[in-house]
Simulated assay, not measured.
Amino acid sequence: MKKHILNEDLIYEILSVVEEIPEGKVATYGQIARLIGRDKNSRLVGKVLSMSEFYGNYPCHRVVNHSGRLVPGWKEQRFLLENEGVGFKDDNHVNLKNFLWDC
């Protein structure tokens, strides 16, 4: 199994996709991984987003898991998404049917 080295080029590639997510929409970790040509690296996307604050100000609150679940323990995420008009199907899940980014 080939290991991918996490370097700044890859970090900025991921963050540049996150930067493109429109206000009022969300993307999934897997969707971002596919957009950078790394279909099986959704966890890598999550790792990069967890340290994004060291690279600038990116709308990481617009990224959820494949079922629309919010990041556990990040209470501000829901508030930020609601302020952009994103709807929820329950307390912890975005309504992906209506708010998933069609990229």
Rank of each mutant, 00 (worst) to 15 (best):
M1C: 12
M1I: 13
M1E: 13
K2V: 15
H4S: 07
H4N: 09
H4G: 03
I5W: 00
D9W: 10
L10Y: 08
I11H: 05
I11A: 04
I11G: 02
Y12W: 15
Y12R: 15
E13V: 07
E13C: 01
E13M: 14
E13G: 15
I14A: 15
L15K: 04
L15N: 07
S16I: 06
V17G: 04
E19I: 00
E19R: 15
I21E: 05
I21K: 11
P22V: 06
E23S: 14
E23V: 14
G24D: 08
G24T: 11
G24K: 10
G24Y: 02
G24E: 08
K25Y: 11
V26P: 09
V26G: 09
A27D: 03
A27S: 15
T28G: 11
T28K: 02
Y29K: 05
Q31K: 08
Q31I: 01
I32M: 04
I32K: 06
A33C: 08
A33W: 02
A33E: 05
R34T: 08
L35N: 06
I36K: 12
I36W: 02
I36R: 10
I36F: 03
G37C: 14
R38I: 07
R38G: 06
R38C: 07
R38H: 13
D39W: 10
D39K: 14
D39I: 13
K40P: 00
K40E: 14
N41V: 02
N41W: 09
N41T: 08
N41H: 13
N41I: 00
S42H: 13
S42V: 03
R43W: 12
R43M: 14
L44G: 11
V45S: 03
G46L: 12
G46N: 12
V48L: 05
L49R: 01
L49Q: 01
L49E: 01
S52Q: 13
S52W: 06
E53S: 10
E53M: 04
F54D: 13
Y55Q: 09
Y55C: 09
N57T: 12
N57C: 02
N57P: 01
P59V: 04
C60H: 11
H61P: 08
H61R: 03
H61L: 09
R62N: 01
R62E: 08
R62L: 03
R62K: 06
R62G: 02
V63W: 06
V64W: 09
N65V: 13
H66C: 10
S67L: 14
P72F: 10
P72S: 13
P72I: 07
G73A: 05
G73W: 04
W74Y: 11
K75C: 00
Q77T: 08
R78A: 08
R78I: 02
F79G: 00
F79Y: 05
F79V: 07
L80H: 08
L80I: 05
L80N: 11
L80K: 14
L80G: 02
L81D: 10
N83I: 00
E84W: 04
E84H: 05
E84P: 10
G85M: 04
G85P: 07
G85R: 04
V86E: 04
K89Y: 00
K89I: 09
D91M: 00
D91T: 01
D91I: 00
D91V: 00
H93M: 06
V94P: 05
V94Y: 07
N95W: 02
N95H: 03
L96E: 10
N98W: 00
F99Q: 01
W101Q: 05
C103H: 07
